[in-house]
Every structure is written in C-alpha cells, then in structure tokens.
C-alpha cells in the first residue's frame, strides 16, 4: 500500500459518541464524570473538534459499551 506523505493529516474525524450516549440515556456530565474529564471536553469530542488520546478514546468506548472503531469515524 502506498500512501502519499501528509495524506493522513487531511483525514477528517467524526464521532458517534452522542448517538451511543443517547442510547444509554447518559448525559454529557455523567459521561465526563465516568471518564474523568470536563463536560466541555465531551462537547468538543462529540463535535469531532477535539482529537483525544488513545487512552481517553478507549475509556469513552468502555463507558459506552462500544469500541473505538464504532465511535470514531475517519473520512478522507
């Protein structure tokens, strides 16, 4: 597989955290408390504006009974 240099830097991140959170009837504040971050971090995560660490992505996925692959979508 040949990937052009810089190509991956242009990939756009979207998340399905809001959808999964709604399924579990959880508020942003509750999710933030579970994973130990501020509520506004969850707000920016849901908007796809914050690029989380692998650890936080894992914690959110565990809190929502999901997986990182399901929660985070990367588009070209």
């Amino acid at each position: 597989m040949c990937i052009e240099p810089g190509f991956l830097g242009n990939v756009k991140m979207e998340t399905r955290i809001r959808e999964f959170r709604a399924r579990k009837k959880m508020t942003q504040a509750e999710l933030a408390g579970l994973v130990g971050v501020r509520r506004e971090t969850i707000v920016f995560l849901e908007k796809g504006k914050y690029n989380p660490s692998l650890k936080l992505a894992h914690d959110v996925a565990v809190a929502l009974d999901s997986s990182i692959d399901d929660l985070f979508i990367f588009r070209d």
Partner: peptide, 10 residues
C-alpha cells in the same frame, strides 16, 4: 468549579 478539573484537553 468544573474548570478546576485538570483533564488531558486542559
């Protein structure tokens, strides 16, 4: 008070 939480983003 929530601003006192030091998370990875802050």
């Amino acid at each position: 008070p929530e601003r006192d939480i030091r998370d990875e983003r802050s």
